[in-house]
Design a protein around this nucleic acid. Structure first.
Length: 597
RNA sequence: GGUCUAGUAGCUCAGUUGGAUAGAGCAACAGCCUUCUAAGCUGUGGGUCGUGGGUUCGAAUCCCGCCUGGAUCACCA
């Protein structure tokens, strides 16, 4: 709102005129007047006392008077303690309303070919297990982030790095080869990722069994692990894979295809997508070359056993292995290779990695390494780290079977949405296809909002029971509010209210209308703050405020039944801009807004 | 042990980056469907913002110490 800037400037001038002191207008502290107080805008006068050399009340009085006579937008002022509360004129608010009526992209910046490019990596699954609740937080944050960035004027490339090689996938392959050879997604009717995941579990079980047997014969845990034939076979398989063994590679391809088909289904259900997918099977060799190049340039060093290391102690970090003594790549090597390929493919202005906070150290190291390798973008990479998702009983543990599967969760939410809607009779008269689509919107709205409203950097507790509660501060509440607004607008059209006529500037606004407008006008700030903080949670908590405010307004103020035609029209317009703002805010989070609930 | 991070109502979370009387939802209780959607609205109760100091007109917010939880410090990914 540039009125804020205007006020600041006038205050600065006032200081000069009244007290003969100079003050940079950006230092003037303003804020939105606290709820329940009279006024719209507040100037904090405490910091100005040094310049006025008078007490807070008198200073506020003097500056308030000055502002009132010099700024036509200010109708009146009131000083309470050290706060100068300004009340703006009705015509100011009406003009603001008029200026955004019909602006469907209010709050969004334009994006064109010259806009800076932000690449956002998220999801990054392993191909040996289906997606779980932790991935859901990752996917939803990554996707929402991409939209927030887009709304802030970035060209966005959403990317996914699929960890499709390594010992973990060999474990699944081996177990399948040994104990499940005839099982396919077609023959079992299972999603491919679930099928493969099952064999990963089989491997783990059999491996444990073997360890227990070896343990009985008197070996220590460590010795048993070394002696395990199952693990040895898995490692051998990995070596064969790296050597390009035809049979192993063919099996690997088949099983990965099953997994990708399964992932695609999950992504589709969640409503997320990617512009470019990278596979570690393609990037790890690039990384190895990069490391060897770095070795040649003495950025890294080789130990006697042949392993390659980076010494980062000068950067306050440790020493880090980059190539194993057998010459194979580690995680870090792959990330270096992936980065290289990406920067070959795109002109990236900003790289963002959406990865859990357990990898903070990894990305600190990666940043320094890329820098050492001569990539100027390395030190600017941004690790968008987020906290773990815990269950009310504690952490998710695959061993204890407490992992919440992504597909199960989504399906369960949809079932609940259906049950509740039918119980309330909300969608009576809808065809079952249309109704199903709305149940899905509601279920995903609930899930997405539940996850996104929490500050990403904090660990969060996911309570399955509460997440399907559709009352209160939830996605469905906001969707419901939008549907309600939609219904008002529909009826306004039916009753021939001419929404092309702008409201008169002579009108006065009630406190509720004023609050609503203020929230809407604040939307661009919210969007840009979410971008600065890289946080969709700003948007979530904002849109809840807006929806709540609207519902209160709805119950207090007649909209279509107001007798005064001009006021009726203005309220319809207000509903329109609120509805549009809710829609835009929900879009940023990847949540659909049903026209009817 | 080093580094990082969090601690706000019984529970789940906000708190506009230092401002006024710390806010929502859930749970409990009491009301409101003859006007545009009751998945809603109104009211009541519930707080030593982990703790002790410091910085200043002013601290949940910034600095230091301590307590508690979590992450990380692999030739795992």
């Amino acid at each position: 709102m540039n009125l804020e800037l205007k006020i600041k400037e006038v205050v600065a001038v006032a200081i000069t005129d009244l007290y003969g002191e100079s003050l940079d207008s950006v230092l003037v502290q303003t804020q939105i007047t606290r709820k329940g107080m009279e006024g719209d805008f507040t100037v904090v006068v405490f910091p100005l006392l040094k310049l006025s050399k008078k007490n807070p009340e008198i200073t506020g009085e003097e500056i308030g008077k000055y502002i009132q006579t010099n700024l036509p937008e200010v109708a009146s002022y009131k000083v309470i303690k050290g706060f100068l509360n300004l009340t703006l004129t009705h015509s100011y608010w009406i003009e603001q309303l008029n200026s955004i009526v019909g602006n469907q992209s209010f709050g969004f910046k334009k994006v064109d070919d010259s806009s800076p490019l932000m690449m956002i990596e998220y999801s990054s699954p392993n191909t040996n297990k289906p997606l779980h609740l932790g991935h859901i937080r990752n996917n939803l944050l990554g996707f929402s982030l991409s939209r927030v960035a887009q709304a802030n004027g970035f060209r966005v490339v959403k990317t996914n790095i699929v960890n499709d090689r390594g010992i973990h996938i060999c474990k699944s392959m081996l177990a399948w080869q040994k104990w499940g050879k005839s099982q396919t997604p077609e023959s079992t009717g299972m999603k491919g990722d679930h099928l493969v995941g099952e064999y990963y579990v089989v491997f783990d079980k059999e491996y444990k069994k073997e360890l227990a047997q070896l343990g009985e014969s008197g070996l220590s845990q460590e010795e048993a692990e070394k002696k395990s034939t199952l693990m040895a076979e898995a490692r051998e398989m990995l070596l064969k894979w790296e050597a390009g063994d035809e049979q192993v590679v063919s099996l690997w391809k088949t099983m990965n295809e099953w997994v990708y088909a399964g992932f695609d289904e999950t992504y589709k259900a969640l409503g997320v997508d990617f512009d470019k997918i990278y596979y570690e099977s393609n990037t790890y060799t690039v990384g190895r070359d990069m490391v060897l190049e770095g070795l040649a340039k003495n950025a890294f060093y080789k130990r006697e056993d042949g392993s390659v290391w980076a010494d980062l102690t000068a950067n306050g970090l440790d020493e880090k292995v980059l190539l194993r003594s057998d010459g194979t790549s580690v995680y870090m090597t792959q990330d270096i290779g992936t980065a290289k390929l990406r920067y070959d493919d795109y002109t990236i202005d900003k790289m963002v990695y959406v990865v859990g906070n357990e990898q903070i150290y990894h990305f600190q190291v990666l940043s320094v390494l890329l820098d050492k390798l001569g990539f100027e973008w390395g030190k600017d990479l941004f690790h968008f780290s987020y906290g773990m998702v815990e269950l009310p009983h504690g952490k998710m543990k695959s061993r204890e079977g407490t992992v919440v599967d992504a597909d199960d969760l989504v399906a369960g939410m949809i079932d609940t949405a259906r049950e509740m809607s039918q119980e309330l009779g909300k969608l009576d008269g809808y065809s079952s296809e249309d109704a199903e689509q709305i149940y899905r919107m509601i279920a995903l709205g609930a899930l997405k909002y539940f996850i996104l409203k929490v500050d990403p950097k904090k660990n969060m507790t996911f309570n399955p029971v509460e997440s399907i509660d559709f009352n209160g501060n939830t996605g469905p509440f906001i969707q419901y509010t939008y549907a309600r607004i939609h219904s008002i607008l529909r009826k306004a059209v039916e009753s021939n209210i001419d929404t092309n006529q702008l409201a008169s500037t002579e009108l006065s606004l009630t406190g509720k209308e004023n609050n609503l407008l203020r929230l809407v006008l604040n939307f661009p700030t919210i969007v840009s703050e979410a971008s600065d903080a890289y946080s969709p949670a700003f948007v979530a908590n904002y849109v809840y405020d807006l929806a709540k405010e609207f519902n209160q307004f709805y119950h207090e103020s007649p909209i279509l039944f107001e007798e005064n035609e001009a006021i009726r029209l203005m309220r319809v317009e207000l509903c329109g801009v609120v509805g549009n703002t809710i829609k835009n805010a929900m879009w940023l989070m990847g949540i659909d807004v049903p026209p009817r609930m």
